[in-house]
Design a binder for these strands. Structure first.
Lengths: 123, 123
DNA sequence: CACATAATTCCATTATCCTAGAACTATGGA
DNA sequence: TCCATAGTTCTAGGATAATGGAATTATGTG
């Protein structure tokens, strides 16, 4: 990910409504959520929601597919990965010794990865 | 970190100039950089830079200290850690199976942590 | 085809942000 | 004290973004 793309993603997420939408979609996982369902859960009017979904989409943070009358939105995880990688890369480029708190945190999140046993507890 | 604080940080970073400033400060590490030096390196006029540093500071992304005539700015790593944790937490809360690319990436960044040997190569 | 539902697009108003010139404050040196 | 340097604050303009009502497009049903 390059700087321009990172700025786009960050500014897209730097908005209360859009961050809420994105988090909701991330927690919904690959199943995704219909626009109307998002609007209902977050109490947004449909046109504002649509505009914000469009902004998230242009930042490659979401994908969408049509299912009947509904359009299902889904978080694009690869962009989030790239974004975090961009920030983490910054960290490492400079002074490795200050990265340790971040790395501790990240190694904890490691436990969320799919393993035969015990997937969800520490999250 | 809660949502409001995350939005503040994300919108602060969602701006070309401020992202450049922040990355520069992160790469400078704990030594930090004087405002004038930042302005020189990034080709910014001092008042714009000052405004943007102020926005980063209000988002708790930077700290500053005076040294003689200069004011030295430094990236606040704990906020960046909390921000990444906020996003990663989102990931895990929902569907753990989609976290694996992120976790792979993060486990690579693990190698940047201070160890007796081989600190910088894979970054 | 007529109708209901699901979303999006259009549009105007309002609010917010960005920028840079100019003035101001703070520090250090002669 | 006087002056130079380092940053910040003030200010006004122009640009950009957010919002929600109304109209429009797309899909499915009777």
């Amino acid at each position: 990910m390059e700087s321009k793309s990172a700025t786009l993603s960050l500014s897209a997420l730097g908005h209360d409504g859009r961050l809420a939408i994105f988090r909701l979609l991330v927690s919904a996982g690959p199943t995704g959520l219909a626009a109307g369902e998002i609007a209902r859960r977050l109490g947004m009017v449909p046109n504002s929601l649509s505009a914000n979904l469009n902004i998230l989409s242009r930042a490659n943070l979401t994908t969408s597919r049509r299912e009947g009358r509904s359009i299902i939105y889904q978080a694009d995880f690869s962009t989030m990965t790239a974004l975090v990688g961009f920030l983490v890369g910054d960290c490492c480029g400079g002074a490795p010794e200050i990265c340790s708190p971040l790395n501790q945190l990240l190694s904890q999140s490691q436990q969320c990865a799919p393993t035969p046993s015990r997937q969800k507890e520490p999250c």
